Simulated assay, not measured.
Amino acid sequence: MKYLFLEYPKCGTCRNAKKWLDEHKVSYEDRHIIDQNPSVEELTEWIERSQLPLKNFFNTSGLVYKAMQLKDKLPSMSEKEQIELLASDGKLIKRPLLVSENQVLVGFKVAEWEESVK
């Protein structure tokens, strides 16, 4: 199975996830989440496929998230507005993302990846 791996190379968690993928000989296409930010269409599809709440896709520990005070603003925004916001800046998206045709993993949790990545 081929995966799309979205990462920010300066992110330690992304580097750990990439190392894990390489060690487990997982085939993937690498994509820089800032240089090639996901589109509204991609995010909409991935959020639906993941079956996770939209809020899980936000990088809540990120500087941009904090600077924009999104903790207070997101609850009053529509889902469409939130996805458009995510699509506007890759630094707002929790990373890494590992996308396949039937699943989307958000963040790097070894146990989850070991169970899900074949």
Rank of each mutant, 00 (worst) to 15 (best):
K2Y: 08
L4F: 04
F5D: 02
E7M: 14
E7K: 11
C11K: 00
G12D: 13
G12S: 15
T13Y: 00
R15M: 04
N16C: 08
A17P: 09
W20M: 14
L21R: 07
D22E: 14
E23A: 14
V26G: 03
Y28Q: 08
Y28M: 03
D30T: 12
D30Y: 15
R31V: 13
R31W: 14
I33N: 02
I33P: 01
N37M: 08
N37Y: 05
P38I: 09
S39L: 06
E41H: 12
L43T: 05
T44P: 06
W46C: 00
W46L: 06
I47M: 10
E48D: 13
S50L: 13
S50E: 10
Q51D: 13
Q51R: 14
Q51P: 01
N56T: 10
F57Y: 04
T60N: 06
S61H: 06
V64E: 08
Y65M: 06
Y65F: 11
K66P: 00
M68A: 11
M68T: 03
Q69W: 02
Q69H: 15
L70R: 06
K71F: 13
K71Y: 09
L74S: 05
P75D: 04
S76R: 08
M77A: 08
L86V: 05
L92N: 02
L92T: 10
K94N: 07
L97K: 03
L98F: 01
S100E: 00
S100W: 02
S100Q: 01
E101Y: 02
L105H: 03
L105V: 05
K109V: 15
E114F: 05
V117W: 08
K118P: 15
